[in-house]
């Protein structure tokens, strides 16, 4: 264990802990934009700088590992002044159109601008102007709002293992984009949206659907597969307008394309709510009992006329173990055939 003091408070933490994590254990707030607890430290936004005794220049607390006897001060007039300059610089290259931004009310940059009281900007200058061009139905990229914190790049690489995007160009022209600046063509898991601290990455599905203050949150479990990821439904009135997941869940807040974006069927007029049975060449609504009886009757008939091996069962690897167990039991014991498989075992 390593013993150090942060703002005159003594704390003992495990070796390898960063100063930022140690400070958070003490409930000391340090502003950050590029840091994400689940991703490797970046050290780019420079907001988490702190003074360390004996070190001539401020250090980023998110990248600095603790050391024995370290004396850290997290806030001094000089440090706060530097943080303010950094924020002014970021805002000088930001559209600042918070009133129409999807992220308003939930934006880390907006919060910091509020707390640091940045209204006028001494450092106004050229702003990056980009054309929006993505044709995909999931992810809206507004790169003018990008602060190059690199979280999206890291989540794509470190969590998803996809690496669809990266930094390109240099200096002021630096930009995060897919290879050769093509349209985004990835798995569309939307993890990048989940970690983006600003309105640069948002979901197309929840565009102009409602502000955070207008929504209720409902915790539920994703029904798409056996993983059972926890979902947070953001509901406005009686309508789900957005889905995300909290970090303290079994899936650590990560979701896939289906869980995150696959909810618009809920209020779709095409949604199937009752079983349909084809009669006289047309689908007709039926009750569940009717439908299940019909299936049982047909299976029995086929088995009798053609034998059990004329029937096969194909299930999904994404179902729960219990469901798959029941399914093979049903096929083997009730139908009487070994013709059973699932999609991951071809």
């Amino acid at each position: 264990m390593i013993k150090l003091t942060i703002d005159n408070k003594i704390i003992e933490v495990a070796e390898g802990t960063t100063v930022l994590d140690a400070a958070r254990m003490l409930n000391i707030e340090i502003p950050t934009l590029c840091h994400h607890p689940k991703l490797t430290p970046f050290g780019g936004c420079r907001l988490c700088i702190v003074e360390v005794k004996g070190v001539p220049r401020p250090l980023t607390s998110c990248t600095t590992p603790v050391s024995e006897g370290m004396e850290v001060v997290t806030s001094t007039p000089a440090i706060e002044d530097l943080r303010k300059t950094v924020l002014e610089l970021i805002l000088s290259d930001h559209p600042n159109d918070c009133m129409i931004c999807e992220k308003a009310g939930d934006c880390a940059l907006q919060e910091l601008a509020y707390f640091y009281g940045i209204k006028e900007n001494r450092l106004e200058g050229e702003r990056r102007i980009y054309k929006k061009k993505d044709g995909n139905p999931f992810i809206e990229r507004d790169m003018e709002k990008c602060i190059l914190c690199g979280r999206c790049v890291k989540v794509c690489e470190e969590v998803e293992g996809v690496g669809a995007i990266d930094f390109t160009y240099r200096g002021f022209q630096s930009k995060i984009c897919p290879t050769f600046e093509k349209d985004l063509d990835c798995e569309f898991c939307g993890q990048c949206i989940a970690v983006c601290p600003t309105g640069a990455l948002t979901g197309k599905a929840w565009k102009q659907q409602g502000r955070i203050k207008d929504t209720r949150e409902t915790e539920t479990t994703c029904g798409y597969c056996g993983c059972g990821c926890s979902l947070t439904l953001h509901v406005r009135g009686n309508e789900v307008i957005k889905i995300d997941s909290r970090e303290d869940t079994i899936n650590e807040g990560w979701l896939c394309v289906k869980g995150r974006f696959g909810y618009t069927f809920i209020n779709s007029p095409d949604r199937l709510k009752k079983p349909l049975i084809k009669r006289n060449g047309r689908f007709e609504e039926a009750s569940w009992n009717e439908a299940l009886d019909y299936i049982a009757e047909r299976l029995k008939k086929i088995k009798k006329e053609h034998g059990p091996d004329s029937i096969a069962g194909l299930s999904s690897a994404r179902c729960t173990n219990e469901e798959n167990y029941l399914f093979q039991k049903f096929i083997r014991a009730a139908i009487g055939t070994n013709n059973v498989d699932h999609c991951a075992r071809y």
Partner: peptide, 18 residues
């Protein structure tokens, strides 16, 4: 220098430009 900034940190990327 502003052209050669790698773009990672804010003070260098935007500051040198300003």
């Amino acid at each position: 220098t502003q052209m050669e900034s790698c773009g990672k940190c804010v003070p260098c990327r935007i500051g040198t430009k300003r």
